[in-house]
Write a protein that binds this DNA or RNA. Structure first.
Lengths: 111, 111
DNA sequence: TCTAATATTCGATTGTCATCGAACAATAGA
DNA sequence: TCTATTGTTCGATGACAATCGAATATTAGA
């Protein structure tokens, strides 16, 4: 079985977390996880192909934002809420709150 | 005189702000601005050359994070605290708090 | 008007990222 | 064992970003 690396709580870097959160697709994924607690990749409805979604999941995992639990052929994603809260208090809440109230588009319109 | 474009408060995008904040040099600049309120580019001591600093200042300005006031040959940077607070309540505070307490390195060490 | 100070812009370089499609891997279930 | 399901990895591509040094622009002050 494949080993998925998750950074230790103490090794989670602020700039990496902020970078992971700076993509509209990834923000959407987090919002979904926040609503459901846990989701498989296949149950997240984003306008990108599987391989791209896999890339985003990896980016979030390696930044320490999400945890990935392997079960059969599926991977369940969930937010590392407690780790993030203890390392960066209030950060995730304010980001997700901002996201919910700001109508962030998932696809940037050309002007 | 050069016109510097600042996005309207309502046009500030969450993902752009998070991206602007995801660079260690820019986080450092913000921390400095937070301490002094206002700074000229020349008074910010970062380990990059002038032109690179100018690039970072522009990134922060265009994302809506900082305001740039022109005075003579100098540009005074300051954080758009009120605009950010009203658009994304608590966000900047939690980010800067996280920065102050997490020992974020300005230069990433190679492993 | 000339010069020094301050900052931006430009061109080049190097590297990373988001995206896709195709191929592959792993596992559940028939 | 065979097949369908679920994701990952790989290679390619196009876009963009961080960095530097050199050239340029703007203004203050002598």
């Amino acid at each position: 079985m494949k080993i998925l690396h998750h950074p230790d709580k103490a090794d989670i870097q602020l700039s990496s977390v902020l970078y992971a959160l700076s993509d509209p697709v990834r923000l959407f994924i987090l919002a979904e996880l926040r609503r459901s607690g846990e989701r498989t990749c296949g149950d997240i409805d984003v306008p990108v192909v599987k391989s791209t979604l896999s890339h985003h999941a990896r980016t979030l995992r390696e930044a320490g934002v999400v945890s990935v639990r392997v079960h059969g052929t599926q991977r369940f994603l969930s937010i590392r809420t407690e780790d993030l809260e203890s390392r960066f208090p209030g950060l995730l809440t304010s980001v997700m709150n901002a996201y919910e109230h700001s109508g962030e588009p998932m696809i940037i319109n050309a002007e």
